[in-house]
């Protein structure tokens, strides 16, 4: 654990302090017109889907997995296409 514990106290305090400052800035959003509008709008409670608790748990995990994997896969596809294209342009402009 030597890499995790290296100066961990000072560094964690710095990370926490920066995080708190960022949170404080983000909190000011709740003072905005936009927040007031949302707070005064009539909110509807999210309906619980009509399925068993186990099915809901499984569907939620599936949702989480797909929502990570699909954008990730698309990014991989786009970056590899981009690499291939730049390589092609380089070789054709040379040849």
């Amino acid at each position: 654990m030597k890499y995790v514990t290296k100066h961990w106290k000072v560094r964690s305090v710095i990370i926490m302090s920066v995080s708190l400052v960022v949170c404080a800035i983000l909190w000011t959003l709740s003072l905005s017109e936009w927040a007031a509008e949302m707070n005064s709008a009539v909110t509807q409670a999210h309906d619980k889907p009509d399925i068993s608790a186990i099915a809901l748990g499984l569907v939620s995990l599936l949702k989480v997995t797909l929502m990570i994997l699909i954008p990730g896969g698309l990014t991989l596809a786009i970056t590899s296409l981009y690499k291939k294209l730049t390589l092609m342009i380089k070789t054709t402009s040379k040849g």
Binding site: A41, M67, I68
Partner: peptide
């Protein structure tokens, strides 16, 4: 609990998933 924060937690909580997907793809 303010509806504003509920909405933010709900929406951005879900947006974190694709953000992580892309973060991982960049380190594939």
């Amino acid at each position: 609990v303010k509806p504003f924060w509920s909405e933010i937690h709900h929406s951005i909580g879900n947006i974190l998933l694709p953000i992580l997907g892309i973060h991982l793809a960049l380190h594939w």
